[in-house]
Design a protein around this nucleic acid. Structure first.
Lengths: 139, 139
DNA sequence: CTAAATGCAAACATTTTGCACGTCG
DNA sequence: CGACGTGCAAAATGTTTGCATTTAG
């Protein structure tokens, strides 16, 4: 079919089922990473069981369709992997999460290699602080 | 007293009890961040209940005596806060965690401010890859 | 039609809490 | 002695699993 979500699933050897389509749709319609519980909440009552949400997210992560994101609160969230590599700005007041495109970490990687013999293959960066909206409310 | 752990607790308005002293001693004797369960395992049988370990770590974190660290596995670990600001090199093979002192993130922070109006107050960086030891075993 | 996916409930794992007793200061 | 801390067990949370039933292909 021409349905993009459907074909995304098929392309990854997953059957296009109601539960998985709904989970994908929620992820796509939300800018920030969501936990299993958050995805489930956003689903109409009979759209998918919480266990199905867990299982779907896990399958998606196995196939790199989504990327797991773990912030400081230790909660596992997921975002669509089609999004470009980026990092996160997390607001300490309202909890919002924005993306930050910038990513020049080569100086760090050289240092890891030269001083620790560590071969870096991936990295994660999180910035904490106050977002624009919250600063406007009480500067 | 001259016992440094004891006075560290007293200085933060905490009673110097057996449980807390033991938890602190474990953290001090270990290079990498530890979870509550890991601290408990390292304690001789009757040194402190798991619930006490949780409560101690929480009190310490409230007083900034320890710093919580959450890696990709979502597990909450703690390291003594007296250690200088640094980031982590996490080995995907053996799970070891080393410190990386380097930390020049001002370009990122300017970008966060200029392009998103986000005021950065703190940050965390993790690098994933293969450590020296594991590379030696199978390069 | 068959293999795969789902719902539901039970099992697990982890963290938190209530309360009686013990300990620090 | 009195407040604070601890152990123990129970409760609350979050995640995984087994199994009978449904559904995609």
């Amino acid at each position: 079919l021409s349905d993009p979500l459907r074909s995304l699933l098929v392309r990854h050897d997953l059957r296009a089922t109601r539960g998985r389509l709904n989970v994908l749709a929620v992820l796509q319609s939300t800018a920030r990473p969501l936990s299993a519980a958050e995805v489930h909440e956003r689903l109409a009552p009979e759209r998918a069981d919480l266990a199905t949400v867990y299982r779907s997210l896990e399958s998606f992560a196995d196939r790199s369709m989504v990327r797991p994101v773990v912030l400081r609160d230790g909660v596992r969230r997921f975002e669509l992997a089609e999004r470009k590599h980026h990092h996160h700005l997390i607001c300490d007041r309202c909890g919002s999460v924005q993306d930050l495109a910038a990513c020049n970490v080569s100086p760090f990687e050289s240092m890891a290699r030269d001083e620790h013999g560590f071969q870096v293959t991936d990295h994660a960066i999180e910035f904490f602080g106050i977002c624009q909206g919250c600063r406007a409310l009480s500067p």
